[in-house]
């Protein structure tokens, strides 16, 4: 499998740094940013990012707002919500907005990795289908 390119968004620097190191050890390319705004900028600059792990509670632009923006600008990028509270409502809201799944902090690194992998898998399948559709379109046009 191609190396996963992941964007981590969390305002808690210590948490983010450690988890970045741990994920990189597990063959994931990680970019880390500390706010929703930076996340959008990073996504704009680095089109190869396939999935985002997004903290719900952040100062300024919060997780849900960021999620909405990401889904608007980069619809193919899958988002996993990371929440500090067990509020079902927030999770449901996130799912409604198009998040792939949600996780509660602190989470097991292996669970996180498997979720990310599933998300990326979905994204790649999506892209494949889109590519196929395009090819078909092009070939049909030729005929």
């Amino acid at each position: 499998m191609k190396k996963i390119k992941l964007l981590l968004v969390d305002d808690e620097k210590a948490f983010l740094d450690t988890i970045t190191k741990r994920l990189e050890k597990r063959e994931v390319t990680v970019s880390a940013v500390y706010s929703g705004k930076d996340a959008l900028v990073e996504l704009e600059n680095n089109k190869t990012i396939e999935a985002v792990v997004l903290d719900v509670k952040m100062p300024g632009m919060d997780g849900i707002q960021t999620l909405v923006e990401i889904k608007k600008e980069f619809p193919l990028v899958e988002v996993i919500m990371l929440t500090g509270h067990a509020t079902v409502e927030t999770a449901i809201d996130g799912m409604k907005m198009g998040a792939f799944d949600y996780l509660m902090k602190p989470c097991d690194i292996d669970v996180l990795v498997s979720k990310v992998e599933a998300a990326v898998e979905k994204k790649r399948q999506h892209e494949e289908k889109i590519t196929e559709a395009r090819i078909r379109e092009i070939t049909e046009r030729r005929v």
Binding site: E12, A14, F15, T18, I19, K21, R22, K57, G84, H85, K105, P106, C107, I109
Partner: peptide, 18 residues
Amino acid sequence: IAHEINNPVAIMVEEAGW
């Protein structure tokens, strides 16, 4: 309080994992 404690705990667990 729960929310505030949650983050440091998460960091501690992550550091241990590291």
